[in-house]
Nucleic acid binder design. Structure first.
Lengths: 473, 473
DNA sequence: ATGGATTTGTCCGTATGTATG
DNA sequence: TCATACATACGGACAAATCCA
């Protein structure tokens, strides 16, 4: 059996490995049937002109994987394999059939990119961040390479609590802050905590689809609640029967309205009444361009039934993958129970957490935030100016003075689909807002997201001019 | 009303902010009731000895937050606030009641730390990693700061596919590889994909509790299936009725057995028969100390119904937070559907992904892995030697030759609880294995995890000597 | 049936070429 | 450049199983 030529030739592979592979194949293909006794180590070594070691190593490996058994001082015997000939073992070099993944990101080349959630990284503090990261990753602090606090680094949570208090009026202690790497993960956590007691959740319609979709997938019954001019319809919210609600009070997505204080109090009152919770989505709360930031809903009343959620994606960079939420004290017990039951580990890199902590501690975040706000304000103002100049009274803008996009309602003779194609022809990247409806109304307007954060300042005016030329007639 | 003294004194706060805060407080406390007309901008500015600008800014801010409304050419009027006196607004400096979190990590000081899943970072390639990270984070590659591919960076996925093929015998293309930041997140993803069709899941008993617990929380019915001497009981698996199973074939957790090839084939056959999936947990597959690594179950047969899961936590460091799984092609459609429906973003830092990609590309991972394997082998061998020396025939070791821990079964006159306390008194950190039972059997042995990876080599022998002295009599 | 010779798995010390630092 | 470490391969030693006169 073993004198098959050719297996000794390629000498870059060690002998024992070649012998192992050969025997494995013979057994798998049934050429060496069950209970066959293999030649003894010495015999085979002699036969092959080798020492016993490589033969022994090959046998040991087959033994570890269960192809053969050893009866000491008797011999090695082939094990029983179920249905050997029906199932050839996979060749190591089998070429996997290539399945093409669907196109998830639009990678076409545009001259003017008004995509709604792009960032401008020209002002990113590269030097400082590299320096702080390098200071974090040193031999003397080996522990930072290990698993950290599942809730997030204590020092970072302290900084976040301080920052949120100062910039967003959030009222919390560091042990209410939970750090994570992404929104999906945090929502999964929340789902596991809340689902048993709160199987329904109300969302704004129109609103950020991620919430509706993610909670649906987690088994919640999602109740779309219509917006009024000043935010979610509290009456409808009561009638929905839900005891959970996701809202974006500081700058509603997508329509950009600020929820007035009276409605905020009604909303908090609703949560108390139904003994439920509000999930406050504060994705762009720091970015308000005229006047001070709108303080968060969370800090409006003490012990409010609010879960506050935010991230450093916009303030620093998405690639850090650091998100946070602030849990009300009434949910902490359930959170800790989940952590210990599921052996949950922190998902945001400890190195980045520690780097960010120092970054904040040294006041660099405030400094960077000021620069970014100023840059985005310029782009915001220029966008509005350019729309007025080129669209005149053929367009209305919603959601001004904050965030990273404007909502542009256009009076155009074309359909939305036609407008999309015309924009592409004009090399302008811009998304319609129609997809933000969970339940579309009978009549929709032609509305588009004009994202101004990612596009260079000097391209705003020509981009909008190109859009107006394409759409108006 | 406005001549309240004291509000002008502290001049580090801008005037408009002071005015805004003062008016907000007055309104919230009901001292300025609904529909009260505020003084006009000019009047108030005169009264306070200010220009109109700060007054107007304060009014604009109150307006934006909905405390007041503007009637053009008439004046600003206080809005209706529900139940004002019943709910005082939260003081900005309210001291939140401090809820103590439960002690999740044992932080006592031990002389000998045999905790099962610690790492040794003395050989971490600090210099190389810093260098590669710094090369990744540069102005010229701004895009790396933005959101990346939700599935993981294509370059990294390519490297992972290559690496898994070479080191673990995994047979896949890069588009079957899904990157994530943590195990919980990946399991959440899988749960959403699989739960509708596969509401039950079988787990090894004893086994890694994380799986049982996490899937239970995600609404699965978890079926514990007993182990045989060579791995999960296939007959019981059939009888469980489940069509999903989590197994660790290369090095079972916690008992360390290697699933032999015949059982592997039976297991794959089971998956085909019930048209289900095996989740292969390969948490330490790279670390085999004598002989070659055991190839993965995933690559044993072409197109096997196996989801393979691994991470860089052990090979590089947990703090990177980079995990991966390899999906069978039959699940790719469902995965992509979920990604686009829930607007899923990648949770592992793009900067770390890119750094790791280069790290692998340059062959540094292989190099580092060799070093780590060698280091851990020394500790592994020394642990076995020391146990033989100090325990003699009073202890048996399971799960040798691989991974990061040994299972130590001790013949001791003490109960498990007494042994735990004796270990602590001897300044030894060691965990019992009893908690790995999902359903504990009638009779359990006194078994402990002897984690050897994290403890310094020279502390192994004295640590085990101390243990033997404490436990034996 | 038996005792000695042989065969066998297993263990161990050593040598060599290559890669590493 | 040189010293070291490592994977691989070699040959021998031991004791138990097997075989045979």
């Amino acid at each position: 059996m073993l004198l098959t030529p050719g297996w000794e030739a390629n000498s870059n592979e060690p002998q024992y490995a070649q012998l192992y592979a050969y025997l494995k194949k013979e057994i798998a293909e049934g050429k060496l049937p069950e209970n066959t006794r293999l030649p003894s180590v010495r015999k085979l070594a002699d036969l092959l002109g080798l020492s016993t070691t490589p033969v022994e190593m090959a046998y040991q490996q087959l033994l570890a994987e269960g192809f053969i058994t050893s009866r000491p001082r008797s011999g090695y015997y082939v094990e029983h394999l179920p249905e050997p000939e029906a199932k050839p073992l996979a060749s190591q070099s089998a070429a996997a059939a290539v399945i093409e993944r669907p196109l998830l990101r639009d990678s076409r080349q545009y001259e003017y990119d008004f995509h709604m959630s792009r960032n401008d990284f020209s002002l990113f503090p590269y030097v400082e961040w590299r320096r702080l990261y390098n200071q974090t990753l040193v031999l003397e602090q080996q522990d930072d390479l290990f698993f950290g606090d599942p809730q997030g680094e204590p020092g970072l949570r302290k900084q976040i609590a301080r920052y949120l208090h100062q910039y967003r009026g959030v009222d919390c202690s560091p042990n209410q802050v939970v750090v994570g790497s992404d929104q999906f993960g945090m929502l999964s956590l929340l789902s596991l905590i809340l689902k048993p007691e709160y199987p329904q959740i109300a969302v704004e319609n129109p609103g950020y689809l991620l919430f509706a979709r993610t909670f649906t997938h987690h088994g919640f019954e999602v109740k779309p609640v219509p917006l009024e001019y000043d935010g979610i319809d509290i009456g409808e919210l009561h009638r929905s029967g839900a005891r959970l609600a996701v809202v974006s009070p500081s700058h509603q997505y997508p329509r950009g309205m600020i929820m007035p204080i009276s409605k905020r109090l009604q909303l908090l009152d609703w949560a108390k009444t139904v003994d439920g919770y509000i999930l406050e989505d504060d994705y762009d709360g720091e970015f308000r361009y005229h006047g001070r930031p709108i303080p968060s809903l969370q800090g409006l009343l003490p012990k409010a039934n609010v879960i506050y959620m935010g991230s450093f994606a916009q303030v620093v960079a998405p690639a850090l993958c650091i998100w946070y939420m602030v849990l009300p004290e009434s949910l902490l017990d359930r959170y800790y129970a989940l952590v210990s039951e599921t052996l949950l580990e922190q998902s945001a890199s400890r190195l980045h957490q520690r780097t960010l902590e120092t970054f904040m501690e040294k006041g660099l975040l405030e400094k960077h935030l000021r620069k970014m706000r100023s840059l985005y304000r310029k782009k915001h103002d220029e966008s509005i100016r350019a729309v007025h100049e080129h669209f005149g009274d053929r367009a209305v803008l919603y959601g001004k003075d904050a965030g990273f996009h404007l909502l542009l309602r256009v009076d155009s003779p074309y359909t939305e689909q036609e407008m999309r194609e015309l924009a592409i022809q004009a090399k302008v990247r811009i998304s319609p807002a129609s997809f933000t409806w969970i339940q579309p109304p009978a009549e929709t307007h032609k509305e588009f997201f004009l994202g101004f954060a990612g596009i260079p300042l000097e391209k705003i005016e020509p981009g909008i001019r190109a859009l107006a030329a394409a759409w108006l007639h």
